[in-house]
Design a protein around this nucleic acid. Structure first.
Lengths: 232, 232
DNA sequence: GCTCGTTTCAAACGGTCGTTTGAATGATAC
DNA sequence: GTATCATTCAAACGACCGTTTGAAACGAGC
């Protein structure tokens, strides 16, 4: 244990993380008790406090395990496009692809837990708990400014404030599409096609780009412009 | 009390509903204890069980108080357009206006609690709790099919399945824009302009319509069509 | 005055929560 | 073998949960 780098208790930690991730999606943070988690994971109740320290720390580790990689992947995708562009502004669809495409690909992974995690993540954007919000803000601190700046360059005619709003709208559309998959299907009255997870990306990306490039609102932006125009 | 139709205990019920509504937005359902609610409302702990029966029933009444009216208002707006159209299909922007415009107007009301409620509602779409989901499904049962059918008629060239997805995306974009107002602004790094609640509607409506009318995804729909086309 | 139904109140109920404890267990090094 | 360390375990801790209770307070009708 001291000499080898391999984790001791090879399963326990991961089993707890897997069980917690799934249960958080099913019931939310508050309604998921540690006894429920350890019960599903098949480990002792005290194992959570032993391996993670507290329930809050467990929640953060559930996110960290996948979110760090996700955000790195988003940056890698963005930088690949930037390298290809050789200093020229990116296309809007490339930026959207780098941010949301990576997310949607993770959400399409139903075998390694990516789908479960993305549902949890989408739900957590509206999570009221203060420490979760702070944690998410820290995790996104490195990636959001990069994408903001890329969008500002890609859409020089659109007021930056408007771009931020639309980025916000896009995030909401995607999060709901992933997280609310069973909540709103009750409203829609059918299951749509959940079998093919890749279908979501094919359907969502055009919607996002259509919204991002929609005509500007009339009263917003500089008043010198009278008629709405295409944003990009 | 038995003769007059006026409610007894004129404040207590409403004070509890107001306090609960605000606290549910701040902390979520599970994390909001009845002692917290009654404490803020300035009433006795037992008042909730006396007036509502249980915490679950209180949650439902918090929604019913405003949601019933909201959905009726949505239907009224839709029927007004339908009357004007005299049997012709509505325009997509009218349907979007009837559904989302009414919601956004309620969300712009910061003095009578409409804003608070819409934040709560948006958050609750992703609420995992089973009874809340069932309750929402019941409340929306009368209104969703009407809007679905109106959209199908308005966009005859778009596959119905695609319309449902985009309706779902629009709902997500709006809910996040309202509910996540402080959650994601931390990510965005600024407060945007929260002073003017009407600004949200002016910014969101073009985005929604842009998404709804975006070109269709390539592989979706009937395969006889090769190139993507405008949806409306 | 008294009565009766509604509403409020302080106190307690059993249960579950997250966390801690101290002893058992297991594997490695000597 | 013994010593040492990380890990697991059953049991308990105090705190808080939603709910119930029975008495007190209130107000309208007579």
């Amino acid at each position: 244990m001291s000499l080898t780098e391999a984790r001791q208790s090879p399963d326990t930690r991961e089993r707890i993380l897997d069980a917690a991730e799934a249960l958080f999606v099913e019931h939310g943070f508050e309604a998921t008790s540690m006894r429920l988690i350890t019960g599903r994971a098949g480990v002792n109740l005290a194992a959570i406090n032993y391996h993670f320290g507290s329930k809050e720390a467990l929640i953060q580790d559930v996110f960290r395990r996948r979110l760090t990689w996700l955000n790195e992947e988003r940056l890698r995708a963005l930088e690949k496009f930037e390298k290809e562009a050789k200093g020229a502004p990116l296309k809007a669809h490339q930026i959207v692809e780098a941010f949301f495409g990576v997310s949607l690909r993770m959400a399409a992974d139903t075998v390694h837990g990516g789908h479960t995690f993305m549902r949890l993540l989408g739900r957590t954007y509206t999570e009221p708990s203060a420490f979760v919000r702070q944690f998410l803000a820290d995790e996104y601190a490195a990636v959001v400014p990069r994408f903001k700046q890329a969008l500002f360059r890609a859409l020089p005619d659109v007021p930056p404030e408007e771009i931020l709003w639309r980025f916000h709208f896009m995030l909401g559309a995607m999060s709901y599409a992933i997280a609310g998959t069973d909540a709103l299907q009750l409203v829609s009255g059918c299951e749509l096609d959940e079998k093919d997870p890749g279908a979501l990306a094919r359907r969502l990306m055009p919607f996002l780009l259509g919204g991002l490039r929609a005509p500007l609102p009339e009263q917003a932006a500089k008043p010198k412009e009278k008629r709405p125009r295409r944003a990009a």
